[in-house]
Design a protein around this nucleic acid. Structure first.
Length: 584
RNA sequence: GCCACCGUAGCUCAGUGGCAGAGCAGCUGUUUCGUAAACAGCAGGUCUCCGGUUCAAAUCCGGACGGUGGCUCCA
């Protein structure tokens, strides 16, 4: 279920790539200094599929500069300079990099006990802790890709540097494969498919980060929602609904106005009272819990809602459906007793993997985040919660990575990332403990001992948000939704006008079986109709002409291009229904 | 928000100071066709918006809004 750990061969390749990319970064800095001697160089690490290097330079780099820089780098590869590491003292390092303020800053932060190492190739020297290839000639393939601004140390109060991104590989073939994967990812871009398939749009006049769901996108969403709702009811969740706004006192009690205000929209005045658009659903669910005295016999209580929230996101971070300002979380809050926690977590894990696998996700990465420095709640509660997360993962044999100190201030959490059809990871599900809200709202239940107790509270979302998950799905499927999700499952293509009547007849029959079927009655040739259906990625094209009408069937073409020949209507219905049932 | 780039018809894009363009999509007609684009005609624009320079601005300058790639943050 989760991704497997690496074999020794994979580890060796990863190490080689690290060295190649790190070395390529040195070549880049070398080239930049050659062409722009006044440039200050900052840092240049290897990253997942390449490397980057940050520079402070009087004018931004242009695409033409990249071409020139690449040429210098190629020259260095040809010159076959060895990479030579040496150790220096802190004072020597300061002297070597006396004109380089960013290097000085790094040197200042190094402990005295640490060995400071430098790396030299040709005339270029960099502060560097190492792992390179032998010589500049050992970089078989690289390419500079783009330029972007990046804050020094990722801190927006610090100066903005110019970052050059590149990619580097152990062979030309691997690089070509990577570049064509980028191209493939480009073709799957949900923003483009969203328009081409008429799924959703944005409009200037509506506002950035706000989605308009068109009928086809809304059809897919409503199928997802129905399936989701059914699953939740089966698993003992209770559906709730809550409003989109709430009074300031609610957000004061919840603490959102203290801790989350930057992400909330300004208050609106209603008869002298301040109301806020909700950035989260939890305070409402908490009040439903608190609407009567709760007994231990009622627990666990699981409330769930497709709750639409509004969060202020800075304009630069908005991205299609993946990062928006108004979105619908598939939220749930579980209230339970300490001894129920572990089973609840196991239940959520099973649910998450089950739901995600319905969408064709088979590989996951799981991250467990523990207590940060600043946190609320008792230590023993944190331990109990963290251990129950660990135990649940172990009971289900799920491999996971630890993110020590990466939890929220109010509780530890589990995040699940899915791996999509072309190998990219997307954060979806999250399971978070909350020691803060039960305290702030003074939540209680009466235990078997007749005493008042504080319940544990767990937030969880499986899709994360419908907008984001839908965007991921579009890219995962490349727009070709499986039968159960396809907004149009089949399209009838009459060969000439005289076949329209029969096509309509077949459509009525298929529709009465609950299938989503259109008829292309445009005055166009069959080829044109097939072309449109192909581009719309409709699973089944049903061609009807004289032969089909006579035999009482349809000629079936799949979007893969496969021609199934003439099939009887009843057989077709059975076939489609079986695909829907299997979520193929 | 910050850095860079971009904004011309529904979409993709030409047009570097002198009459606003093409392909696809749309509409009308002709055609009635066997597995990825029939043919013809028509229509479609405040060149994102506001201001400035100029005899003259899609084009040059400033600002706003929107988008793209990153940074920070995150569902």
């Amino acid at each position: 279920m989760p991704v497997k750990s690496n074999t020794p061969e994979e580890e060796a390749l990863a190490d080689r790539r690290f060295r190649i990319r790190h070395s390529a970064a040195h070549l880049l800095a070398d080239a930049v200094l050659e062409i722009f001697p006044e440039a200050k160089y900052a840092i240049g690490p290897p990253v997942e599929t390449g490397f980057y290097y940050d520079f402070d330079i009087s004018r931004p780099f242009t695409p033409d500069d990249l071409v020139e820089l690449e040429a210098v780098m190629k020259l260095r590869v040809g010159e076959a300079h060895p990479f030579e590491m040496s150790s220096v003292t802190k004072d020597e390092a300061r002297e070597l990099f006396r004109d380089q303020p960013y290097k000085q800053e790094i040197i200042d932060e190094l402990e005295l006990s640490e060995t400071i190492t430098t790396c030299k190739h040709g005339n270029f020297l960099d502060l560097c802790r190492g792992r390179h290839v032998e010589a500049t000639s050992d970089i078989p393939a690289f390419k500079l890709l783009n330029v972007a601004g990046a804050y020094w140390r990722g801190d927006e109060s610090k100066p903005m540097l110019q970052r050059i991104y590149g990619t580097a590989w152990e062979s030309k073939e691997s690089m070509e494969a990577h570049l064509s994967q980028l191209e493939e990812a480009g073709k799957r871009d949900h923003r483009i498919l969203g328009r081409d398939l008429d799924l959703f749009s944005h409009h200037d006049q509506v506002g950035s980060g706000l989605i308009l769901w068109h009928p086809k996108g809304a059809m897919v969403r409503s199928i997802m929602e129905n399936h989701w709702r059914e699953q939740h009811i089966n698993r003992g969740y209770q559906l709730v609904y809550s409003p989109h706004i709430g009074k300031s006192s609610l957000w004061e009690t919840s603490g959102h106005l203290d801790f989350y205000r930057d992400s909330m929209y300004e208050a609106m005045d209603v008869e002298g009272q301040e109301y806020y658009a909700k950035p989260m659903n939890c305070p409402f669910h908490v009040h439903i819990y608190d609407s009567e005295k709760r007994s231990y016999r009622e627990l666990p209580i699981r409330y769930t809602e497709l709750g639409t929230v509004y969060r202020y996101e800075r304009s630069g971070v908005l991205h299609g459906m993946l990062r928006v300002r108004g979105f619908t979380q598939d939220d749930a809050h579980i209230f339970c007793m300490p001894d129920q926690i572990e089973d609840e977590i196991v239940g959520v894990l099973d649910f998450a993997f089950d739901l995600l696998s319905a969408y064709g996700f088979q590989e996951y990465e799981v991250f467990l985040s523990t207590r940060p420095e600043k946190a609320v709640g008792e230590l023993d509660q944190w331990d109990l919660a963290t251990n129950s997360l660990k135990n649940a993962l172990e009971r289900r044999d799920v491999l996971y990575s630890m993110d020590e100190g990466g939890g929220a201030f109010y509780g530890p959490k589990l995040d699940i990332k899915v791996r999509d059809a072309i190998g990219r990871s997307w954060q979806c599900s999250t399971i978070q403990f909350d020691f803060n809200l039960p305290e702030r709202f003074d939540l209680k239940y009466v235990g078997s001992d007749g005493q008042q107790h504080r319940p544990f509270m767990v937030h969880r979302a499986l899709f994360g948000s419908l907008e984001r998950f839908f965007g991921v799905l579009i890219e995962h499927y490349g727009g070709a939704f499986p039968m159960w999700l396809a907004p149009t499952q089949a399209i009838l293509i009459p060969i000439s006008d005289r076949h329209i009547e029969y096509a309509n007849e077949v459509q009525r029959e298929l529709s009465s079986d609950g299938l989503r079927v259109d008829v292309d009655i445009r005055n166009e040739r069959m080829n044109q109709k097939i072309r449109l259906a192909q581009m719309q990625k409709i699973p089944y094209m049903l061609i009807v002409g004289d032969k089909e009408k006579e035999l009482g069937g349809v000629a079936v073409r799949l979007r893969s291009g496969e021609d199934l020949g003439i099939i009887k209507i009843s057989d077709l219905v059975a076939r489609i229904k079986s695909e829907i049932g299997n979520r193929e």
